[in-house]
Nucleic acid binder design. Structure first.
Lengths: 244, 244
DNA sequence: TTTTGAAAAATCATCGATTATTTGTCAAGC
DNA sequence: GCTTGACAAATAATCGATGATTTTTCAAAA
C-alpha cells in the first residue's frame, strides 16, 4: 500500500509534505483536468460559446490528448461543455433563456431539497447550516479585490449546498450542484457587484434561521425569493450587455 | 458537403442503403459506444454493480481503449456508470434507496415538466401526445415474447417523454430522461409482468386526456399516481429478490 | 494459523503516432 | 460576380505501445 490520500504513515511523524502532487484527492491527470477545466469555464477564463481547440488546450494545460478528451467528456454532464461528433467540444453558450431555465430549476429543485432536508435532516446538518451561514457572513466581498470575490463565491456556494445537504437524495444533490455551477458562471461573468436594493446577508440569515427552526414554508419561500431575485438581477445585467 | 443524416441527395433517388454504417446519427466509435453501452446497462446485459474491465470490454465491443474510455466518461452523467481514479469504471449498483429516490424525483420533475408543457405547449405538442398514446395502446406487451417487451419499453418511454416535451426547458428534459433511463433499468431487470391490480392503459389514457384538455391538476395527479404505483410495484419485486 | 511484505500479474492511465473528417483556399466554369 | 469542386491545411478520432497503480500470489516470520 502506498501513501494514498489521508493515509497516516510511519517514519516518525514526518508528515511529509508529499511534494510532487497537490492531492485534492484527484490522482489522475484526467480528474485534475476536470477540476481545472470546470474552474476555467465557470470563472469565464474560457469564453462561453467558444470552441475548444484540442491541440491548443493540450498545450496550454500541458497534457496529452487522452486525458483531455476524457475530462471534457465528463464535463458534458455538468452542462458546461457541449459536444458534436467530428466537431469536437465547445464551452456551453450563455443566453437569456438558459439563465431563466437555470433560475426556475434552482427554485424548484432547491426548495424541494430544502424541504426534504428539514424533514429528515439531523442535528449535524443543522450545525453545518449555522456554520456555513457564519462563514458566509464573515467573508468579505469587495469588487475592488478580485480574490475576495472568488473566496466569497466558494463560501456562498458552500452555504447553498449545505442548506440542502441533509436531504439524503444524492441524485437530487448532484442536479442541484450542476445548476449551482451553471448559475455561478453567470454571476462570476456578469455580476461583480450586488444590487443596491438588496441586503443579501439578511436573506441568507432568514433562510438559515427558518431552516433550523424547521419552518418549511417560511424557509422555502425565503429561499425561492432569494434565488428569484438573483435571477432577476442577472437577467438585467445580461440585457445590458446585449445578450439574448 | 457529404451525405449527412437526413440529407436528400442526388443520384436519381437511389436511396442508397449506406451499407457500411448503421447511421443513427452517431458517426464516431465513441458515440456509438455510448448508445451500445447504455442499452447494455439498461437491459441488464451488464450487471448492476459489476466492474467494467477495460481489456475485456475492449474485446467484446471490438474497439480500442480511447473511444471506450471516452464513452464511459460520458455515461457517468447518465448515472449508469460510476468511476474512481485508478480503479476504473463500474456499472452503477441498484438499491432500494436508489429506486425510491428515482421514483420521488420522477414524481417531482415530471409533474413540474408536465405542468409547464400544459402552460406553454403548442398544438403540435398536443398532437404528438395523442400519437404517442395511440402507439402505446397499440403496442403489445407479452412476457412470453421478449421482443415485444423491448418494443413496449421503447414506446412507453417515448410516451412519457412526449408528455413533457412541450415545456421548453431543455435542462429539465435531460434530467427527466436520465431519471427515466434509471427507472427503466429497474423495470427491465425486475419487472417482466405488470401488476394484476392495475390497468396501465387506462392510466396512460387519463394522463393524456387530462393533458390535452390542459387540466393541470388532474393530469399531474394522474401522472404522479402512475409513477408512484410503478415505484411501489418495483420496490416489491426488489424486496422479493432480497435487494436492500 | 495468521500476518507480513516483496514479487508477479492484472489492470488502469497516458503518450506519440497514424488515420479520418472537416474546414479553408483558390482556380475553372457558368 | 457567383458557384463548384478539387486540393491543402487544420482539426478531430483512433490506435498500439509504454508507464503507473492496484490487486493477487505466496513464501517467510510471528
Amino acid at each position: 500500500m502506498q501513501s494514498g490520500p489521508g493515509s497516516l504513515i510511519l517514519e516518525g511523524g514526518t508528515e511529509a509534505a508529499t511534494p510532487s502532487f497537490p492531492d485534492d484527492g484527484k490522482n489522475t491527470i484526467a480528474s485534475q483536468l476536470v477540476s481545472r477545466l470546470r474552474e476555467a469555464i465557470i470563472s469565464g477564463e474560457l469564453e462561453a460559446g467558444s470552441k475548444i481547440n484540442l491541440d491548443r488546450a493540450k498545450q496550454s494545460f500541458n497534457v496529452s490528448l487522452s486525458p483531455l478528451r476524457e475530462a471534457l467528456a465528463r464535463l458534458i454532464s455538468d452542462g458546461l461543455v457541449e459536444f458534436e461528433d467530428n466537431r469536437g467540444y465547445r464551452v456551453s453558450p450563455v443566453s437569456l433563456s438558459n439563465l431563466e431555465e437555470i433560475t426556475s430549476l434552482r427554485e424548484e429543485f432547491e426548495t424541494y431539497a430544502l424541504r426534504e432536508s428539514m424533514r429528515v435532516g439531523d442535528v449535524d446538518w443543522e450545525g453545518n447550516v449555522m456554520r456555513a451561514l457564519h462563514r458566509l457572513n464573515r467573508t468579505e466581498r469587495d469588487a475592488a479585490k478580485p480574490e475576495t470575490l472568488e473566496q466569497w463565491e466558494a463560501v456562498h456556494r458552500e452555504f447553498h449546498l449545505t442548506l440542502i445537504s441533509g436531504c439524503r437524495k444524492p441524485l437530487l444533490l448532484s442536479f442541484c450542484k450542476t445548476m449551482l455551477n451553471l448559475n455561478d458562471r453567470y454571476r462570476r461573468t456578469f455580476l461583480t457587484r450586488t444590487s443596491g436594493d438588496r441586503n443579501v446577508s439578511v436573506e441568507h440569515s432568514e433562510i438559515a434561521q427558518g431552516t433550523v427552526a424547521r419552518d418549511m414554508d417560511y424557509a422555502c419561500d425565503r429561499l425561492r425569493e432569494h434565488i428569484h431575485r438573483t435571477g432577476t438581477n442577472l437577467r438585467r445585467h445580461l440585457a445590458e450587455k446585449g445578450i439574448a
